[in-house]
Design a protein around this nucleic acid. Structure first.
Lengths: 150, 150
DNA sequence: ATCCAGCATGCAATAAAATTGCATCGATGT
DNA sequence: ACATCGATGCAATTTTATTGCATGCTGGAT
């Protein structure tokens, strides 16, 4: 994992649709060497996968929210159960168990408030193990990056 | 944007490294038609970009945290300034202005506690416009998805 | 109901890109 | 100095993407 590998990873994290040849050119390697490095990074699992990122607006999910959740029953099994429940929801992009004043944090991508309402009913009401929850609707996003700095 | 387009988008959101031919096969189209659809989705901006997702552990950033921030001076210009400041930090994956008890939420990807400490100094101390902040370290992640449900 | 326009489709040909074999180069350790 | 292992570049080959073209389908106008 030298300087060239890092450079390649940075390029791929920005745009993985580029041709191998153009990246090879940019890092100053021949296409074959470049390809072999990228393949090695994939096989080593440094590159987990290649995915398409959609435009949320054009995919109909502009509304974002961060929800912090306090559970009624704490502890590992209960937390896990709640995360599993949340994970099944398609509006839930991320579900984390956390330290601090609350037990879990959810990152949501919603179509509209109606979907939010329905989600709250499913996750937080009824016989769910939720004591309280706080919703923060995202007003503006200053940064939203999948790339991991190396 | 019909059923086949959605199917293609779902495939691409999971794995954009597949060959056009195999996806064409899966959705029941010829390679050329499939390619033209995908190209159309890209040009229309539905597909924003294709990126490589790295394994956080192998990239040396396992520690994650959610930080909620209350600003001293609220309002649009001040919030924007803080988001800009946060966006410049490479450990900050997401920076959002939000409604609710706090003004902003940051999603962090950290190497270690040392980096967290240094980041807090830069973002929250000194002449920064931060009244208080609450850090939730991620214990376990139940879901972490870039795909947007269609 | 018929006709026309516009668009998506499949096939086949072509172009582009990825992949591989092989000889060489360079660094590391003996 | 020498051997070894891995990385490199080049050229050949294979795979994949892309395009031209004829056909077929769909929706609107007459």
């Amino acid at each position: 994992m030298d300087r060239i590998d890092r450079k390649l990873l940075n390029l791929l994290q920005r745009d993985a649709s580029r041709t191998n040849a153009s990246m090879a050119d940019e890092v100053g390697l021949s296409p074959s060497s470049c390809l072999r490095r990228i393949r090695r990074l994939r096989q080593a699992g440094v590159i987990d996968r290649i995915v398409a990122l959609l435009n949320p607006a054009k995919a109909g999910r502009t509304l974002r929210a961060v929800v912090t959740v306090e559970l009624r029953l704490h502890g590992e099994p209960n937390t896990r159960q709640f995360l599993d429940l949340a994970a099944r929801e398609e509006a839930v992009a991320q579900a984390h168990a956390v330290t601090g004043e609350v037990d879990a944090v959810l990152m949501l991508r919603l179509r509209d408030m109606e979907e939010y309402d329905a989600l709250c009913h499913r996750l937080f009401q009824d016989r769910a193990n939720v004591a309280r929850y706080w919703t923060m609707m995202v007003i503006r996003t200053g940064k939203d990056e999948t790339a991991i700095a190396l």
